[in-house]
Write a protein that binds this DNA or RNA. Sequence first.
RNA 1: GCCCGGGUGGCGAAAUUGGUAAACGCAACAGACUUAAAAUUUGUCGACCGCAAGGUCCUGUGGGUUCGAGUCCCACCCCGGGCACCA
Length: 1174
Amino acid sequence: MISLMKKNVYDPAKIEPKWQKKWAAKKLYKSKEDPKKDKFYVLDMFPYPSGEGLHVGHPKGYIATDVVSRFQRMNGRSVLHPMGFDAFGLPAENYALKTKTNPEIAVKKNVERYKKQLEILGFDYDWSREVNTTDPKYYKWTQWIFLQLLKKGLAYESYEPVNWCPTDKTVLANEDVENGRCERCGTPVEKKLMKQWVLKITDYADRLLKDLDAKDGNAKPLLDWPASIKELQRNWIGRSEGAEIDFRLTFAKNKTRFMILHGFEGGAKTDFHPWLKDVLEKHGQQVEVPELPNSYHPKEAEQVEYVLTNCKLDENTVIVAHSLGAVVAMKALMKLNKPISGLVIVASAVDPKFDKFYESRSFNKDFNWDYDYAAIKRLTGGKIAVLSDSREPKRAPYLKYLADKLSARLVETTSKEEHFCAIEEPEVLKAVTPSVKVFTTRPDTLFGVTYMVLAPEHPWVQVAMPHVENKAEVEAYIFKSSRETEIERTDATKEKTGVELKGVKAVNPANNEEVPVWIADYVLADYGTGAVMAVPAHDERDWAFAKKFGLLTRDVIAPTFGEPNPADEPVDGSAIMIFDRQKSLYACLHWHNPERYTIVTGAKKGSESYEETARRELKEEAGISDVKSWHRLGGKLFAHYYNQSKKEFKSASSMQFLAVIDSHDIGEHSREPHETFDLEWKTAAEMLDLFEKTIPKSRHIFEILGRAVLLLCGLGIDKTTDISKFDFVKDVPFLEPGILIDSGRFSGKASGTVMKEITESVGGKWVTKFKLRDWVFSRQRYWGEPIPVIQCENCGVVPVPEKDLPVELPKVKSYEPTGTGESPLVAVSNWVNVKCPKCRGPAKRETNTMPSWAGSSWYYLRYEDPKNTKAMVGPKNEKYWSPIDLYVGGAEHATRHLIYARFWHKFLYDIGVVSTIEPFIKLQHVGLIMGEDGRKMSKRFGNVVNPDEIVKTFGADTLRIYEMFMGPFDQQIAWSTESIVGARRFIEKVWRIAVSAPFWLRTFPLRASQSGKVPLPSGLEQNSRIIHKTIKKVTDDIMSLRFNTAISSLMIAVNELEKATISREDFEVILKLLAPFAPHVSEELWASLGHKESIHVSGWPVYDPKLSADDEATIIVQINGKVRGSFKSKIGSDKGELERIAKGLPETKKWLEGKKIGRVIVVPDRLVNIVLTD
RNA sequence: GCCCGGGUGGCGAAAUUGGUAAACGCAACAGACUUAAAAUUUGUCGACCGCAAGGUCCUGUGGGUUCGAGUCCCACCCCGGGCACCA
């Protein structure tokens, strides 16, 4: 009947190539957009065809998608399971350089080799849809996407410090840097100031983050991704909310003298003028506010003359001119013709020629509105600001015009009262004095700011430099940090470094305190605002910095202990530790009923100070009035504790004191005998022990004792206590939330509740920041897609017209990187020099190329419509196949490929190219296969196993089964050539069942027996249970990608069936279940049973729920939770019945003899647990 | 330091909702078949006590919840991965 039966040896080397050829010839796996069928798009991350070929680890993911793809096809889906090659980029180029072959030729050779290696594994790829990122027909569309990004302003040229790898001689994106080193070659990266193309991925940061948790139509998560990858992306995007707050800077040297000129119908005492004078003077500035003559009937000549004769105007003067004062100021300046330091124009009066609305004012006739703009610019050194109030839309156009004429900084803002007429106008102050914006997530600690730190590269450092007294030192520091590598700079464990900008102060807007300004490299220029307000008491980095440089710390958040009781009125007072310096003993109060130990405390009475309260309580409760020395023990504490005598929860805040006394003082003062407690003297260790035993929940008392011990030991007064027991009091910043103290009107509030309030109170803004940086998109290398723009001398950046795409990569003699920051393409002059598409003038092509992540950011779409010449993907095919139902690949792509691709996909969605907001619905990672030595498989370790060899000795089906059976799919497991025989034995077992003589004689027509005509032979009924159970298990497991247990259940089934009589139908089911895993052998045996159609397009077996479950259950009998016996029972047996049987079992009985039975727990179909009472 | 995973026999690993821990496979040992070997096949295979029947202890460590914990809670130890001066 069939030839294989004659020679019944399983020989994969014969059958595997045979079927691979047949499948290819029949185009069995061609993907079709069949509207009658549901689609299933299953995708592998396409490989980078390196010169080394595949090792056994690579195909693991491909086998998995192949299993799923075959499974879905058998289930009637129209399946898309494509493959292609990601061949641009450094590895291909470096390989080419090393072997001195053109990368194009090397890639072609490597792709051929990869394809051959993949083919022998029997994958069902539709090769007619193959894509290759280096094919001009493909990268035409990569370039097209770039042009669309450019059109939407999402691609831009930036001139900022970027990561530069000196070995690979190219810039890198943030994502390409690992711990400060180039991800490819491990060289420490350098920061280099270069002009680069950058993609504005940050515009999508919020969506990239939010859509990780997007829901589909059924309110289920849209993305079925491993939680760890989602978390990785969340961290990488790094969203944080916080406040941006302005800190004004003041300079000690070269004191600025401010001249405030009021306007029409104003005066030195009106509007914001007195307030501004006051604030500026507080910070040591000189301020003059002249009262201009005839404010209500102003004459130009008179007022200008007054200013020139009465006010001192020199190179240190900044004129702040309000309204009509601005006209006077500019006229005076023109006449003076000497340089001044700066000019701030606040809502200047408007030239009636500019807007008729202003024609009717009385002073118009007398004033002349023609300015010598050039002179004003020259005399102010260009330092002019024009403030425009959003409450005055009529005036705004003129101010804009004025600012334009003067090349001034236009500050469009909102005043407190129209035309900046309020008593306080902070916006004017802000414009008048330089200010630095800081970003903080803890505005609640604003009152604790004791200094400010700028990044060395912060632009304000250069602005402030003329005022800096220690210029040389500061410049040396900036130089040094600019020379350091990223690793050196960002090493969190290194000691902090920094330099103070002497002569520069920052003003804390919360309390108008001046604090020193430092520069330090622990502040990063490119995060937040590049400047931080330092709160050493509540921030670890600031703390370390302050400790090193002896800067002040100020506690503004007090810790709280215990859970608050909202009904309770908090009590404020003092707590006192008492120390006898002769005996080295501490005092505590010993209470009775219930027995407990505490310390001396008391509430404030009337207007007492904390210290007065402490002294009074000390006298009342301890009878001590003579104290040798008083100490404050740290900041205030807030406690929520259980008062044992009053039996209620209390809230109290206290200031801590330590009183050091002499022994003889105690005896000399008699105290009132108290009814409820005694004063006792203990060592610190004893007290700690007593507290632990009697008041374990009052942690604030522990804290106070600890603080006292640490202080006394530190001062050398207490020489006996072992401080190691008190290390719960740590000399570290307090980072947790708590209660605000020393924070003005915010004191007493909980830190979590005041963030926005404090921010607003100082005019700050609540903002969102991301760690994600824009994607540096240029590479100074040859082997990548040319960036399709032209640099024209006249027109600037001109995009290559879409009709001229692709911009093909020219052939070159030398593709060695130049290392100069220019691409090797610069040398190809006939390619570089082009005519500008706009003006036809001489122009040059952009010579940088794209990173290798460009082509891989959209390849999955090209598979859907690979031959389309009109569009990157046609809408019909896109709608049919998208989104990807299953995407399988390595977890190492979490923060690069998977973020970039999501970014591009969302952009393509916005411009209407794709119809889904996310590309990959279900994502699964492959666990790496390690070498047999447990290390990563690598040529370097000599532990590489070649799949070709394995296929040669064991067969492709065996390799496939083994890799799927090794363990959980996403887990990293070491390869074991020894273990692979198990998979081979399993296949041979199936083979033997098929060929063992004479199989077809044992074949029994099951359908006939079920119709009742023929009696069922024994064993077959049992078989069908096994079969249906296995169908269910394998189906479920493939759907949830648990391939190892799917195979294990197939093994169990085969083991069982081998022993019994097996029907032809049952055997065919087994072959079908095996087909996705071992496509060749199942096809061979399927054909041997006489089938003409391929098993891979036959239907997937369906299980009968009645037969897929057992009809009998093993009931476990436990006595006191210990297994003592078991029995079988029909599914769904009555509880009482089960209990009765359980009690009657001989192995149970002996445990029950003479014992009393208490509770009996019966779990139907599972167990009976008999609990004995004694 | 922070954020994710994970820790089960000699090894890879199983164990839907808490309900017989170690399914399936590898290796090992013993037997059958064989002149012999390979292949195949049968059996044993967590530890301890015991001739045995049987018993006791076992899922990184310690505690807790529960009739019952690999599974839930708390603390800690170890391994892998990611981020790392992100204000």
